[in-house]
Simulated assay, not measured.
Amino acid sequence: MARFWVCAVAAVFSLAFLILHSCYCGPPMFRNFVFVNRWTTEKPLYRLDLDWPKYSEMFTGTPFCVAVDSPNGLVYVAQRGDNIPKMLVLSEDGHLLRAWNYTVDTPHGMFAASTPYEQTVWITDVGSDFMMLWLHGESGTGPTHFNIPHSVTLDSTGRVWVADRGNKRIQMFDKVTGEWLGMWDDCFTEEGPSSVRFTADGKYVFFAQLNLSRLSFVAAPPAGSVGRCSVVSTIQLADQVSPHLVDVDRKTGAIYVAEIGAKQVQKYVPLSSSSSSLGS
């Protein structure tokens, strides 16, 4: 019995040494893996789909944004770089369907507004002239003011959510009247959000933080309430992955993340999914 306890104690100390060594001396991805899985008490909601895309070499530039065309099962990726296709169109299972290198100069954001009968994608191009169609607010730090408004989305109750990146907050407005409804800033002491979206079931608001390489999930408040920004789950990416903009497949619930540091787009699927492509 004494020999058993000696071996058990030795094993515990060996494991502790391995964890500490990995945290401070190991490669960046393993450091993040150890911290997230050993210390967090959050409930994981998503897992990385290791089979998407089929060939990561298709990303020949820096993917700045991604948009999901749920009705047609398509994923659009816009990337920056010289002498490369600026637009890639992939299938839900990760196959490259087509690409083009015209009409787009320096893409920044993108939104798919397709129907089963017509495919439409809107792209913000910071390298070309543009015409302003709608404006709300002004530069500043007060309510309704913005400093690098970087992403916008709508919820099912008619609220507009804006990732006010420079002011380290998310602001909410009424879609019809433009009335300011409130803001979240207590989740952003380290860094502002670069992107904001809702999960397909509408249960969570989630946002990306570029320099922290993190996705955070917050329970969505009910209609008539802004609530508090209390993170219930996170996806901690490897160091310097830098998630820029994200999008959601409204049909499958999958989340796609455009990573400008890693120069790739990754797909995360809900843990409730029965897909055989789920990875750890």
Rank of each mutant, 00 (worst) to 15 (best):
P71N: 06
I123V: 14
C187T: 10
H21Q: 10
N101G: 08
S56Q: 13
D186E: 14
C25T: 08
A258P: 04
D249G: 10
T144V: 01
Q236H: 04
R169V: 08
S242A: 07
G202N: 05
M110W: 13
L278D: 11
L212A: 12
V232I: 06
V196F: 09
Q240S: 13
H136V: 14
H145I: 04
L88F: 11
Q79H: 06
V232L: 10
L50E: 10
V126A: 14
A262R: 01
T157F: 11
V232Q: 10
G202V: 12
W134K: 13
Q240H: 00
T115C: 06
V205L: 10
V246M: 07
V36H: 09
Y55I: 08
G73R: 08
S114F: 09
R197V: 13
G178Q: 00
R165V: 13
A163V: 10
Y55H: 13
A254Y: 04
P107N: 15
A262G: 02
C187Y: 12
L88E: 01
F198A: 08
T177P: 00
G253A: 03
S128C: 05
P28V: 02
L97H: 13
M132N: 15
N147I: 01
F111C: 09
V176R: 06
T177G: 05
N37G: 04
D51E: 15
S151R: 05
R159E: 14
D186A: 14
K203V: 11
V152E: 07
G94H: 03
N211L: 13
C23E: 15
N167S: 02
G279F: 01
P193I: 11
V77C: 01
V121Q: 09
A10I: 07
V241P: 00
S56T: 10
R228Y: 09
I148M: 07
F35A: 12
A238L: 06
